[in-house]
Design a protein around this nucleic acid. Structure first.
Length: 844
RNA sequence: GCCGGAGUGGCGGAAAUGGCAGACGCAAGGGACUUAAAAUCCCUCGGGUGGUUAACGCCCGUACCGGUUCGAUUCCGGUCUCCGGCACCA
């Protein structure tokens, strides 16, 4: 409880259980209301300053901020405030990714309408953000579930549709046969429905897709442009796209016109094919089953494979299972008869849905062949040994020389592959081909809480896009949340029944809504022009701000969200809406917040509520600690005790300024020659300015930037303690403390604003210029040189900074601690790293 | 399984480009101030070992094994463990 407050040395000091500390509550409230009143972070699209766009990934309004949010926003706010101080016109917006499953779950479980649930959460979380003192332009706030926004999300869908990038096809969904409803992956636990436990099955539905594969080459190639992205994210995207170059080879089916086409990157192993495997979904499986005596058995097996998830099917530890289809195809190279199987480890989505089995040279094929006792034919021989099919314990996948390969014997497998490809092409059995792992983006959701897909089905005119003038297609408010059967929207007749925009006769609306990833694939553009009633954004506004200079968010978005946003930007570029081809120039992927070795989560019960920290220590302490505890891109181990350290530091800063407030009534800069102690403090100050600036701007090393400011504060205290007060260099102290506050301002905006005002400034600290360092002050007068013998540190020498190399070397050889180590030894060589070390290499 | 990360004191972490391992902070121990406590300030703080309980010295130590180098937390090869993503959570 708060007990007393009194005036001490001119400042308000509060006692908390009798403990003195600066009064963060009053200070933070004071500045937050000033910033709100003055609209301090409002930004215009045009300014005489250069524009800079910093963006944190907008949150899903789940109810309350968690530590990961605080971390994300604290990092972004440091960037925004620093760039402002560096003279930029900074766009720093915030909004809400407000459509999605949890709101619908809340409706189902607690009977609260998604609109209401979302609205409450947004209100609460916005208040929390305001209590953190974040420098957002709140006039640009956007919410994806508001019709003003999703109108334009629907517009984006139409853009895709009109450009031939949105299309329909059937795709499987998870389905609960009891609830008669589609299940999200998240709603399937241990293979069963989350509500009733009934095993989920796969069911085919007509669904909308975006043709991301149409942009696959540009999505891959332009990764090279993203020099400001972490290498690991670029690499993850590259692998996600998964380009692989190979050959399409056709195996003839006796008695049939069509053959079986496979995609392979290993056409060099074609003589080693001993079986053919089809995915369960491959159309030939059903066809061949028809003429097989075991028709039922085969179809049952295919159905069973179909139900297994893709991850399970491709996992190496999953038992490979297959069934012979009682049919054969022909190897185009040697006319060999190849048995055709169906198996669980082949996917219809990748390549052609058919795989040639080369057990000797592919591990999965090898395991399959061993299990079903199929032939293993060695066609590539390692350079140093003989392979025999019987003796093999695993597939041989490395390079070698072709054997048992007819006319191609003796060639290296690389050379052989070229020859075989040429031969296949000549004979009409194969063509070079490129395959990608990337699939088209399934964007339909059979749910209520999303942007309705603006499409009408007319019995006469077919699929009709809703005209732009009729947007938005509004979500109906009144709806039952436990409807079963496909999308909840299908149960609202006044929504479904409409008229055809072309012929005016009765028609039905599409009842699927859009994947929320669509909403978040273009929001960064809307911030440029958030209140535009006529367009998603004006081209001018986008040109003024795009690309986002610095994007910050969780590494869990490294692939999907970022890839989809890149896709949207490219489509909008092609449509003439934006000039840029990539949306985000620099990307920081922040690490997770961990407690007791696990990601903070409600289910584990290791959540620390930021609210608690803010009410006990204030926003400045919370922000400072979360930035200090770990580098931004690494995981952060939360420590309640660690927070105390940041709290104590801010109090130390507070007391330092309070104790020296008398200095600030005098004028005058640093003049004349400085004494030794003064020169050291001056050097520390300017070294710190340099380090903090470079740590933030070049390395995003916010934790070491804060550590450097702590050192500077410690050094200032040492100066005050060690130099008698009558000899204090007042102008130097004044400059040191002013610049310290400036350095700290982006991290702890409230306390620095307050102290800045207290020392007599009328203009906000956040509008000041970032301090510059004096390069000439950085050179140390003395250096410590490490002396090593055979790489082991044996002594240290303090020398003048401008000592000659030979001089230092001589001093090292003569040093009393070094001499005894050289007795009876030969000095073989001396390594000299100027200003750092001398390593004397000796031998007997 | 595939793809991507990470492993340094009791703890979080620090050491652009290979060159003093452990900055800064937390915890712990000791001391000063206080009737006492809190707060604050000062000192110690990787492990082992020698030394007069000293000054000071020696050996080991950055997940594990090996390599390159005068010198490796940093580079290379291999192993183990933990974490993130895997397309309907966002």
């Amino acid at each position: 409880m708060f007990m007393t407050s009194w005036i001490k040395e001119g400042a308000i000091v509060l006692a908390y259980n009798g403990v003195e500390h600066y009064e963060f509550k009053a200070i933070e409230q004071k500045w937050q209301s000033i910033w709100e009143r003055e609209n301090a972070y409002k930004v215009q699209n045009r300014s005489e300053k250069p524009n800079y766009y910093v963006l944190e990934m907008f949150p899903y309004p789940s109810g309350a901020l968690h530590m990961g949010h605080i971390r994300n926003y604290a990092i972004g706010d440091v960037v925004a405030r620093l760039k402002t101080m560096n003279g930029y016109n900074v766009l720093h917006p915030m909004g809400w990714d407000a459509f999605g499953l949890p709101a619908e779950n809340a409706a189902i479980q607690r009977g609260i309408h998604p609109v209401e649930w979302t609205r409450q959460n947004v209100t609460n979380m916005r208040e929390q953000q305001k209590r953190l003192g974040l420098s957002y332009d709140w006039e640009r706030e956007l919410t994806t579930c508001s019709p003003d926004y999703y109108k334009w999300t629907q517009w984006m869908f139409l853009l895709m549709y009109n450009r031939g990038l949105a299309y329909k096809k059937t795709a499987p969904v998870n389905w609960c046969p009891t609830c008669q409803t589609v299940l999200a992956n998240e709603q399937v636990s241990e293979g069963g429905c989350w509500r009733c436990g009934t095993p989920a099955i796969e069911k085919d539905l007509e669904q909308w897709f975006f043709r991301t594969t149409g942009y696959v080459d540009r999505l891959l190639q332009d990764l090279e442009l993203l020099e400001g992205w972490p290498e690991r994210v670029r690499s993850m995207q590259e692998h996600w796209i998964g380009k692989s170059e190979g050959t399409e080879v056709t195996f003839a089916l006796p008695g049939q016109e069509k053959g079986i086409t496979v995609f392979t990157t290993r056409s060099d192993t074609l003589y080693g094919v001993s079986f053919m495997v089809l995915a369960a979904e491959h159309p030939l499986v059903a066809e061949l089953a028809k003429i097989s005596p075991r028709k039922e058995e085969i179809l049952d097996f295919a159905q069973k494979c179909h139900r297994e998830s893709e991850i399970d099917r491709t996992a190496a530890e999953t038992e490979k299972e297959g069934m012979f289809l009682d049919a054969y195809c022909i190897n185009p190279l040697n006319g060999g008869r190849i048995p055709i199987w169906v198996a669980n480890y082949v996917l219809m989505e990748y390549g052609t849905g058919a795989v040639m089995g080369v057990p000797a040279h592919d591990q999965r094929d090898f395991e399959f062949a061993r299990k079903y006792d199929l032939d293993i034919r060695v066609v590539i021989s390692p350079p140093d040994q003989e392979l025999s099919a019987e003796g093999m314990t695993e597939a041989y996948v490395k390079p070698g020389v072709l054997v048992n390969s007819g006319p191609f014997n003796g060639l290296s497998n690389i050379e052989g592959q070229k020859k075989i490809d040429a031969f296949l092409k000549e004979q009409g059995h194969g063509v070079p081909s490129v395959t990608y792992r990337l699939k088209d983006w399934l964007v339909s959701r059979q749910r209520y809480w999303g942007a309705p897909i603006p499409i009408v089905y007319c019995p006469h005119c077919g699929i009709m896009p809703v005209p732009e003038t009729e947007l938005p297609v509004l979500l109906p408010e009144h709806i039952a949340f436990d409807p079963g059967l496909l999308s909840p929207l299908a149960h609202v007749p006044e929504f479904v029944n409409t008229i055809c925009p072309q012929c005016g006769r009765a028609a039905k609306r599409e009842t699927d809504t859009m994947d929320t990833f669509i909403c978040s694939s273009w929001y960064y553009l809307r911030y440029c022009d958030p209140n535009n009633k006529h367009m998603p954004f004006s081209k001018d506004a986008a040109a003024a701000w795009m690309p986002v200079d610095q994007y910050i968010g969780g590494v869990e978005h490294a692939v999907m969200h970022l890839l989809y946003s890149r896709f949207f930007t490219k489509v909008l570029h092609d449509a003439g809406w934006v000039k840029v081809v990539e949306p985000f120039t620099n990307l920081l992927t922040q690490g997770m917040v961990i407690k007791d070795g696990h990601k903070m989560s409600k289910s584990i019960g290791n959540v620390v509520d930021p609210e608690e920290i803010i009410s006990r220590y204030g926003a400045d302490t919370a922000r400072l600690f979360i930035l200090f505890a770990s580098p931004p891109d690494k995981d952060l181990e939360w420590s309640d005790q660690g927070v105390e350290g940041s709290w104590r530091f801010l109090n130390r800063v507070w007391r330092l300024i309070q104790s020296q407030r008398h200095l600030f009534s005098t004028d005058g800069g640093i003049q004349g020659k400085l004494g030794r102690a003064e020169r050291e403090l001056y050097r520390k100050l300017h070294g710190t300015i340099k380090k903090v600036t470079e740590d933030i701007e070049a390395r995003f090393s916010l934790n070491t930037a804060i550590a450097a400011i702590m050192e500077l504060i410690n050094e200032t205290y040492h100066y005050l303690d060690n130099v008698p007060s009558e000899k204090h260099h007042e102008a130097l102290l004044k400059e040191t403390m002013e610049k310290t506050l400036l350095l700290l301002a982006p991290f702890a905006p409230h306390i620095t604003a307050e102290l800045w005002e207290q020392i007599g400034n009328t203009d906000s600290i956040h509008k000041q210029r970032w301090p510059q360092w004096d390069e000439s002050a950085l050179k140390a007068e003395q250096l410590t040189i490490v002396v090593q013998v055979n790489g082991k540190v044996r002594d240290r020498l303090v020398v003048l900074a401008d000592s000659a190399e030979e001089e230092v070397q001589e001093l090292a050889l003569q040093a009393p601690k070094i001499q005894p180590l050289l007795v009876d030894k030969k000095v073989a060589r001396i390594i000299n790293v100027p200003g750092r070390l001398v390593n004397i290499v000796v031998s007997d």
